[in-house]
Amino acid sequence: MGLIDRTRGIFVGPEAPTFLTTKLDFFVNWARRNSLWPMPFGTACCAIEMMASAASNYDLSRFGMERMSFSPRQADVLICAGRVPYKLAPVLRRVWDQMPQPKWSISMGACASSGGVFDVYSMVQGIDTIIPVDVYIPGCPPRPEALIYGLMMIQEKIRQESLNDHYALRSEDPATVARPRAAGEELVGLTGPFGNSTQQDRLSGLAVTPAAFPSDDPSSDF
């Protein structure tokens, strides 16, 4: 490629004059998919595999995930690695809401994708009930190759995007910020009698818990 010589107003260099034409879609997608900065949201053992993926043996930076962005405002892809309890749900939702568009998300491992073995009182049954998910990676935990493959699937997804679809893909409704993403019926469906070896339902119970928790009263502060 040549350079512009400002004094003479012409291209200079051995191959001048040269220039490059391309589709804007291709160029933008090329830039986006080769500089995906992950926002690590590691909560459990999947995070260990995520760290291994970033370390020298597997070296995520080869694919453009140059650094783990520990600030959501400078990140492109959220990697939720591990189980998310209900207490952490607003934190995950807030991290996702803080990330600027365009953004993607990966649900890494069985627990993030579906709750996994934790079909219990404290655990979010899949982070897709809280935030949108682009790629689900199966495994308990997935190997680093699987995470890299998941990130490459996101790259492939970006490659097929067009700026024509930008607003359809990227507009966000402020009313849904910090709200559940899944519909109520979807969440109720998750409570079906599957995978639960204890055969308990919510109304059974050997006895009734006697006293209500004092802070259940919304008017009390703690």
Partner: peptide, 25 residues
């Protein structure tokens, strides 16, 4: 929903998943 490690506590809690998610967020 009560006290989770009590034996009378249902494994998935007392509220529906919808209510639990709503309260969580």
């Amino acid at each position: 929903e009560g006290y989770p490690l009590r034996k009378d506590f249902p494994l998935r809690g007392r509220f529906s998943r919808e209510e639990q998610t709503r309260r969580a967020l």
